[in-house]
Simulated assay, not measured.
Amino acid sequence: MTPIAVTFLVLSIVIVWGGAVASALSLRRRSEVGEYPPGADDDHRQADAPIEHDT
């Protein structure tokens, strides 16, 4: 492999794995959602009956 190919290979590996490590560390630091947007998991619409459609 040429030196330029090795350089780009190392650069791409650093970018991909660096992003993966940074996102994992970010998720470790803030893994819980403070507030859900409307319609999310803590929305109490699941207590209502499901929608029934005529077919």
Rank of each mutant, 00 (worst) to 15 (best):
W17Y: 15
V16D: 00
Q46G: 02
V14A: 12
E35Y: 07
R29W: 08
Y36T: 12
A24I: 15
A40F: 12
V6C: 09
I13F: 10
I4W: 06
L11E: 06
A20T: 08
A40S: 15
E52G: 00
I51P: 00
L27T: 11
T2A: 05
H53W: 15
H44S: 14
G34R: 07
A20W: 06
G18F: 01
A47H: 06
W17S: 10
P3G: 09
D42Y: 11
L9P: 00
D54K: 13
P38L: 00
W17M: 09
S12D: 09
G18Q: 02
D43A: 12
D54V: 10
E35L: 07
D48T: 03
E32F: 06
I13S: 03
S31N: 11
I13D: 02
F8K: 03
W17C: 09
V33R: 07
V16Q: 04
L11V: 15
G19W: 01
H44N: 04
A20C: 06
T2C: 04
T2F: 03
A5K: 03
I51M: 12
V33G: 05
M1Y: 04
Y36K: 04
S23H: 05
H44Q: 15
D43F: 00
S23V: 07
T2R: 11
Q46E: 04
V10Y: 02
A40L: 02
V21Y: 13
D48E: 07
R30V: 05
M1C: 06
V10R: 03
V16L: 10
V16F: 02
R29Y: 13
E52N: 12
V33Y: 06
H53N: 06
H53D: 05
I4D: 12
T7A: 01
P38D: 01
F8D: 06
A5T: 14
